[in-house]
Amino acid sequence: MTRHSYAIARFSGLVVAVLLGLTSSAQAQTDLLNDLEKQTTDPLKREVVTATFKATHIINSQSIETPGNGTLAFLIQHRFGTLNSGAYEFFGLDQAVLRLSFEYGLTDRLAVGVGRSSQEKTFDGFLKYKALQQTTGTRAMPVSVTLFASSAINTLKFNEPVERTTASRLDYTYQVLVARKFSPALSVQLMPTLIHRNYVAKEGMQNDVYAVGAGLRQKLTKRLALTADYFYLLPGNTAKTYQNALGVGVDIETGGHVFQLHLTNSKGMTEKFFVPQTDGNFFKGDIYFGFTVARSFTIKSQL
């Protein structure tokens, strides 16, 4: 070899070294985070959509939400009298119907609950199961589906002509709650509903009442949302005699708990009351002012 070729070798070696050094450091500076993101961002990953609704109830209806694993929710639901009851009744504020309930998340998907309404001294118990959860990503689940089943027992004393049997005091509710969170602000829910009543007072009244409900939540700000729900009674005797339940309201989140304030034509707060027995005409002023306060207690820590 000649000296000439040594020089070329030396020179090219230098160039390679410099180039190597340059590219590696430049790449490290700009691409380290990008590389990391590329490796960790899995486009196929499906993520569950959370917080479709702020609370476990929209207004009258249940929402697809459950309290969550190990969380006990205490709900105070309150309805005053109708706004059109006049000054003597202080526009409804003199009267009140109350439902107290506990809801507990056995798992993230399954919840059990018990409640007591002052209306007809009714106890109710329910199961709620998140069968499907809306997800994002490829082959995403478009909706969340929660199954809801409840039974309610009227514990009034009936003395005449005879005391009623236990079976005749029971009513059952079955619902499929289907919801989609269209955007962080807007969520919509549909709810096919069946109410089965073991006992009806008059001939011609339906033991099985079918209805389709719809609910929505539109956030106005981060902590304030408009809500509405509505139950359409499928044609039949009940639909002829009673009104479709309508509620409009706001959800206010204060940090610790959620206040729900609403106006509705339904006095009852369990399905057996508001679906087949709503008698108020919303547009004639038979409007009950009401609120729901939910307080959550952590029974089982997630950590």
């Binding site: 959370t50 309290p67 969550g68 190990g70 969380t71 959550s296 952590t298 820590s301 997630q302 950590l303």
Partner: peptide, 8 residues
């Protein structure tokens, strides 16, 4: 979080 609500 310990609390599901807090996490939400």
């Amino acid at each position: 979080f310990k609390r599901t609500l807090m996490q939400e």
